[in-house]
Design a protein around this nucleic acid. Structure first.
Length: 554
RNA sequence: GCGUCCGUAGCUCAACGGAUAGAGCGUUGGACUUCGAAUCCACAGGUUGGAGGUUCGAAUCCUCUCGGACGCGCCA
């Protein structure tokens, strides 16, 4: 794709500085700072603005106002810039020529559903691991946040040209799973009229009884003498199937499900341990084997093999991340709940010890969701079986509203999910504001078609009649889709897209309420139909990145 | 005790170190005989928890402090 308007301005500002250097106005050895161009909040400050004069002040020993004054001499010669002026203490504000804004419609026409995409990822093999909830119970509301954010980050990176795989890591090894098996065994024997108490800290939820019933329906009483392992496997596969179904209704699709147990089957654990040992980063103490993570920024060393000779969870996790590298991934993105933050340094340390490049492992956190009903906190414990499932929430408020709600907020902010509020606000969820605009445009296009008006191609239309300030603002907003997506990819902040959508749609609703798209003036009608159709595509592309539907009517 | 994150309008939240801190909900008053009123327009609402500091400029960065959440296992 060609450069966006914003990127063109950045280039032109840099060129202006270089030109001033060539002409001896600026010193020839000047180190040009990064040029930042933004869309100002206040429309009086133009379509775009840059603060470049400020970082240059110190280097050039001139006032920002004077520097800006020098630069605009070069910039005002540019054809795509209608007006450029110095404002405030030294900001440079740009008004884009309408001809350039109109071209956005041509770019949308050419690129269609790819409009906004890019190739900075250069097909880099990337694995996004998220959710990875233990298969000990159904997904609850809190999991929804991780699922939504992880899925959307995957979409965004894919749109930016990364080769993305989404993976779910299944913790099918360890004590919790044994307890799960024992819990099912107890519930199953209950059905046979035999009593085996639930294990200490066993899983008490209703769903375990349902699974026991299912096992009884399938196998009768023939499992009376099966061991805990048998029950564990049955419980786990049932629960994983339930998780898969929940995710399906939430619009989340994993390409890969990776079981912890395969690390043992394929001796990955042993290989990693050997490697760390050979590199001299391990030692024995108190009967256990330790990894010197402190040599790589951790605050204490960590146990790899316990005194009882069983590897720790950590060892498995090192082997797991190692397997990602072995499978050819160059960029590893992990999305964890913030309760795991204390674990970051040790995992990063282990990957450094194994000589993997530091930047190749990115660990993102999202803050936990607390649940309340009215003002009363609701606890969420899988073990005690007290929780509201993700499926229930989706049934109540819908997939689109739930996803939008989860990704509207910065992921490092705490989120309180009030069930009553969620229900009452489901009708007021901003997602409808955005979807309504899309449906409204589709309705206009239907009306036009009924009147025998088709959307003509860009070349056949006189787009110069699009000269209302709302139309130009809309085009200016539409022009930054790629910039917004790239910003999200750089910062891993998907919530920016929701803000972008709301700002853009607000301009549209305002425009719609004050001007008619279809009118008796056919040249204006043609151009406006092309404009709203372009907006429809921008909305659809953005919603699709968020995994939210773009309804044609609602 | 140590560490991570958060504190912004009555409520839920935005704001790449930038210009007069913005939206929605709620309150008040207006706009449908014309493309969808799930919309639009107007009004009101703030010492960005508090105190210092860094600089051309701080809600944002640093130090201290108050309040909240979460971590600190040879658990997973």
């Amino acid at each position: 794709m060609n450069l966006t308007i914003k990127q063109q301005i950045e280039t032109k500002v840099r060129d202006a500085i270089k030109q001033a250097m060539i002409e001896g106005i600026f010193p020839e050895d000047l180190l040009i700072p990064e040029v930042q161009v933004e869309s100002p909040k206040n429309p009086e400050f133009g379509d775009f603005a840059t603060n470049i004069s400020f970082p240059l002040t110190k280097i050039l020993k001139k006032s920002p106002h004077d520097i800006a004054g020098i630069l605009i001499k070069y910039l005002e010669k540019e054809k795509m810039i209608k007006k450029v002026e110095v404002a405030g203490a030294g900001f440079i504000n740009f008004w884009i020529a309408s001809e350039r804004l109109h071209e956005i419609l041509k770019e949308i026409e050419i690129n269609g559903e790819r409009y906004g995409s890019s190739n900075i990822g250069q097909r880099k093999k990337t694995i996004v691991e998220f959710l990875s909830a233990n298969p000990t119970g159904p997904l609850h509301v809190g999991h929804g946040r991780g699922a939504a954010i992880g899925d959307i980050i995957g979409n965004i990176l894919g749109f930016c040209g990364y080769d993305v795989t989404r993976e779910y890591y299944i913790n099918d090894v360890g004590n919790q799973m044994v307890k799960l098996g024992a819990s099912l065994q107890s519930r199953y024997l209950d059905l046979l009229g035999e009593s085996l108490p639930l294990p200490e800290e066993g899983y008490q939820g209703e769903y375990m009884i349902d699974i026991a019933k299912k096992l009884y329906e399938l196998e009768g009483d023939s499992c009376r003498d099966k061991d805990v392992l048998y029950f564990k496997n049955f419980a786990m596969s049932e629960i994983l199937e339930d998780i898969r179904q929940s995710l399906l209704s939430f619009g989340v699709h994993f390409n890969s499900w990776f079981a912890e147990s395969t690390l043992y089957q394929e001796e990955m654990i042993k290989k990693v341990l050997d490697k760390l040992e050979n590199m001299g980063y391990t030692y024995e103490a108190n009967g256990a084997l330790w990894l010197k993570t402190t040599a790589f920024g951790d605050d204490k060393d960590r146990v790899l093999i316990r005194e009882n000779q069983i590897p720790t969870y950590f060892t498995g996790d090192i082997a797991y991340h190692c397997s990602k590298y072995v499978r050819g991934y160059e960029l590893l993105i992990d999305l964890w709940g913030a309760d795991h933050h204390g674990y970051i340094n040790r995992l990063k340390a282990a990957c450094l010890a194994l000589n993997y490049p530091k930047e190749s492992l990115v660990i993102l956190l999202y803050q936990l969701v607390s649940l309340s009903r009215g003002n009363q906190p609701v606890s969420m414990s899988t073990r005690q079986g007290e929780f509201v499932t993700l499926t229930e929430v989706i049934q109540e408020v819908g997939k689109d509203a739930a996803r939008f709600f989860f990704c509207m907020r910065k992921s490092d902010a705490h989120l309180d999910f009030d069930l009553e509020l969620a229900r009452s606000q489901s009708q007021e969820n901003p997602v409808y504001y955005v979807q309504y605009a899309h449906a409204r445009i589709c309705s206009i296009l239907r009306k036009a078609r009924e009147a025998g008006l088709e959307i003509k191609s860009y070349e056949k239309i006189d787009v110069s009649v699009l000269n209302l300030s709302e139309e130009l603002m809309l085009l200016s907003k539409m022009s930054t889709l790629q910039d917004e997506v790239l910003g999200c990819a750089r910062t891993f902040e998907p919530h920016r897209l929701t803000i972008y959508l709301m700002e853009m749609v607000s301009i549209f609703h305002n425009y719609y309420n004050h001007h008619r798209i279809i009118s008796s003036e056919s040249d204006i009608t043609d151009a406006r139909l092309l404009l709203v159709n372009g907006l429809r595509i921008v909305l659809k592309n953005t919603l699709s990145l968020l995994g939210i539907s773009a309804p044609e009517e609602m």
